[in-house]
Design a protein around this nucleic acid. Structure first.
Lengths: 203, 203, 203, 203
DNA sequence: TATGAATGAGATTTCATTCAT
DNA sequence: TATGAATGAAATCTCATTCAT
């Protein structure tokens, strides 16, 4: 007997649930947001949610899993259109410079993204996955650009690609998390960082 | 008749509870850690805890309140022994460079400190307090040093003290939070930042 | 998709809980009776009870709300079958004369009904509702009868309907609450009251 | 070794506690009022209270015990100054007519007095004591007056003294408890009762 | 597959009572 | 005797999860 509903239907439903869950977790935090909050926000019944996910925890883990991927997609989307490494670095900074951290949605995303990290930080198994993913996606992405720049002669040769990648992401993480403070001059600080960073890398 | 126990006894007891609570919150997170965890860790009875704090939330808030102050104390402890602004900046970086982020306790503190921020981020009133405290303690501290350096001619005159202070703390925050990832080269990245930063500020 | 259970099912369930709660409150008093008592008596789980009522207090308030209405229903049930006012007064007394105050259930109801009043007496808002309800139902009911009797010439014209109504209910309340004493001659006293009252009103 | 504090001191202390407890119970009800409320109101420490009373329940029971006695004292105070039975009945009604039920203190006393009854009503042993006390003090008091009036020819001979006594107290109880309703015409109703009652008894 | 009523473990909090000082 | 900090049993309420329909 063929499945009564198509896989694509199921996929769509899952994404619906995840998207509502993200909103709820962003608003209240994972622990405080309840399944009923998700029910209310998504309009999908409790039973249905449990048909798609074994537990509240699983919803959270799935969201965490997609978190890095989404960042990655966002970052790589137009990256290939830039030809030289320096432009790529510019582009990466500009992606973050374009964030409006005062916007409700951005603000929420930053909070929930950091909550993911803290949640993982207390759970060795999840932390390992998250670390691996970060390496695979974010660090590698940057390492490639550094290497490309070094080969093209744009960047200093003594730069350690991995350290530089970590430096970049640490700075980004720094401004991002500080942006939750009221009146934090996000753009100003990030621009300083950009300038600092570019001077550091350019040959 | 004199009071049964002295105020200092009560103060000590309160600190005992707070210190146990901090450990528990660090280990499991505020939501997951229970009053029973604190009872078990502190050896103080549930009722006694509620004699000192009205609610679990109040314990958390009190911990948050002391969080910045403790950092501030740590940072200002030896700061006055340094005579020139440049040395002071060195010192501030070195305080963070001396952190052993692999140590259980440091790791926990970093996590719980960031959890404080996220908790506050969802609560306008608390966020305002936290922002004010950050300004009063951390930003001002750094602004003074920058100004001092500018007056003594050690630092560039075109530096905007406040932006520079924000830059510093954003970088510190960035490495700190990234340190929760396994195998993160905390010291290496922080050293790069220090170097970058010093070059930026020095006249 | 139709609702899982009908509204009448939910109504029935609610009444089940209320009825169990009434028994428990009657047996032990509102403060002493616990939700677990209601769970045990009703066989309905704690969670289910909280699905129907927000709090123990709400259960109590709902019971209070229905208390007067039930009395009113009991009293008005056959009242219309009596044609003249005098017969109606007779009927009202007889309703109370038919109470067997030695019976466990009646005894409990009297206690819980009076507990309602005391509870309300400490809460201005609830008291106002209770007072309004008493006026609307019990006092008006009696006032109508008095007026009817005055118009038909059965009753004295100088009777003040409202005062007379209050007199009636005060006497009823008096015997009722005294009935909780062991060996109180409930019927005898109430019969005296009836006789006294009838003489007073009849033209 | 002689007692360090005199018996009269202890007696005074006990009365202090009881008087504070009465206020607290009146304000909040026995179950809701806490020992800490009594501590706060009396200014006597928790430990001291437990030196004088074994439990919160015991405080309550002692208050109940004095409740009837106090009424009795109030009623008998000037009763002997009246020579004829009819005047005595007048006096008894007038005592209650002189109550200002709108006054905070009177209101509270009525509530707590009725709470005593309900509390007792759920406890056979206490109920027996209360019933006995009522008989001994209140009913007997009235029975004597009725008999006196019958002997002097003031009252009807066919009155059953005990029933008449019960009738009197039931009416008093009725107006008293109804007085907790807002805008209850206490004096008006009680005056009607007095008139009714006097007509009933007088020869 | 969808629904939402039911479940009950487990959390927070209260407060009568004890007891060291 | 007086004090009030400490205790812990027991209460209320929440909410992730199950399951009959």
């Amino acid at each position: 007997m063929p499945p009564i509903v198509s896989d694509s239907y199921k996929e769509k439903k899952k994404r619906e649930i995840l998207s509502s869950a993200l909103v709820c977790f962003a608003k209240k935090g994972f622990q405080v947001a309840t399944i009923d909050d998700i029910v209310e926000h998504s309009g999908i019944s409790k039973g249905a949610i449990y048909n798609y996910f074994k537990s509240k925890d699983e919803i959270y883990l799935e969201l965490m899993a997609t978190d890095t991927e989404e960042s990655f997609e966002l970052l790589t989307k137009d990256l290939s259109t830039y030809k030289c490494a320096m432009e790529k670095i510019h582009y990466l900074f500009d992606v973050y410079l374009s964030f409006n951290v005062l916007e409700e949605e951005t603000h929420s995303k930053i909070i929930v993204h950091n909550e993911f990290k803290l949640y993982a930080a207390r759970n060795q198994e999840i932390m390992e996955k998250l670390t691996a993913r970060r390496h695979h996606y974010l660090i590698q992405l940057f390492v490639e650009i550094i290497k490309e720049g070094q080969e093209s002669g744009e960047f200093k040769h003594q730069l350690k690609p991995e350290t530089t990648a970590n430096l970049f992401w640490s700075m980004i993480d720094g401004v991002t998390i500080q942006s939750i403070y009221n009146d934090y001059p996000y753009k100003e600080v990030l621009n300083e960082m950009k300038q600092l960073f570019l001077e550091k890398v350019k040959a």
